[in-house]
Write a protein that binds this DNA or RNA. Sequence first.
DNA 1: ACCTGAACACCGTTCAAGT
DNA 2: ACCTGAACACCGTTCAAGT
Lengths: 231, 231
Amino acid sequence: MTPMPEEALSADEVIAAAIVLLDDVGLRGFTMRALAQRLGTYPATIYWHVGSRGAVLSEVGGRVFGDAFDKLPDAGSTPWDEWLVHAARGYREAGRAHPAVAAWAVTHMHSRVTTPDWTEAILLALSRAGFRDEHLTAAFNTFLGSLVGWVGVELIADDPELGWDPEQMEEGIGALSADDYPTIVANRDELTNRAFSLRWRGGGSNPLDESFEFALSTWIEGLRRQLDRDA
Amino acid sequence: MTPMPEEALSADEVIAAAIVLLDDVGLRGFTMRALAQRLGTYPATIYWHVGSRGAVLSEVGGRVFGDAFDKLPDAGSTPWDEWLVHAARGYREAGRAHPAVAAWAVTHMHSRVTTPDWTEAILLALSRAGFRDEHLTAAFNTFLGSLVGWVGVELIADDPELGWDPEQMEEGIGALSADDYPTIVANRDELTNRAFSLRWRGGGSNPLDESFEFALSTWIEGLRRQLDRDA
DNA sequence: ACCTGAACACCGTTCAAGT
DNA sequence: ACCTGAACACCGTTCAAGT
């Protein structure tokens, strides 16, 4: 398990340990000191091999979503809508396996995290669908932003420190009056812990599979409609 | 500007100062000490009036998006699709006015931030559109997750500390080969700083208006198609 | 009720020094 | 080239004490 103590540490080992640490303690507990300790070394060693905390997280994101990309079918030979479904599910599965990474990725989506491979493949799929020029850009941003954003929202950590007091939330939802909030009250059982903003368990322990599949087909049907409109 | 030194501080004043501080220094620079200093008091005073840093941010989110909600038309008398357009633009405008708050909201979307008012109104609009029971939940999550997530992705801070090295990114995009990344290269000028993952300027200074409107109509057309399918 | 001032237990990051 | 050990300049939060 632990690397041979005689061997020099490698950047790859740092990234791998960072992923495990993030899974164990979340974004908040992910400190350079904790990471160094797990590797049996000192914080400055991390800086030497990878760089700052942000650099480590970027590399982690690249690794996690890069691996997910490698499992996808070929965007050039799969029907575009089918490929987008595979891509979205693949992104979400990678996120679900490492929720802290997915949460971080929402607010740090640049080319080191969403790699050129992802970018090219999504653009290729949308291009094969028929999107061109500024419509290609818009369709790309629509798909990627909706996907990365939605999954980030779903995978909120259920960390009471961050403002989720389960009892208080349940009580708050229960106290909403039918006069002021008729639609919520009429659907309370259905919505509780299933609707964003009416749940107190994050997507890690409480995945919203049905909603995700619904959202995914909404995005793709919507994109299809945009093609019809331009044609 | 500054409150009378004789007057006791109020929670409202703390929230108001917090919003200004967040606008000035971003999420990273938003510390309890800095907030206390701006109010001419001590960190413990913040704790007495509002609570922890997370509590302050929750209240800030509630205020920012609560004010945005108050400007929306009535969800019960506006056509559902039209109302969703207003709601989405209102949310995004509030986010653009306070990007740090929007970025925080993505990973902290619970009932104190996305208030019951928002939840009720969106549910009402979707209910009037024809969504029922589990389809109502799914449509709600689709709309809110896509919206909050997309805007959060758009409004990434352009903070070089966080991994955006402009020169390095521009160089990286320029170095992509046409063999490996034909679609990116063919559309490079169109995509650079306009496509998520190929930009190095966040949505605060570089808004992606066209893509947002495209995304919004994609979501709504997609939802319409879901209704057709069930009917 | 409201605030002060200090303290506790941490952080990320840098750097001189070692091997 | 790779790592140690310590230091710097911060954090969020708590708490006894004041008024």
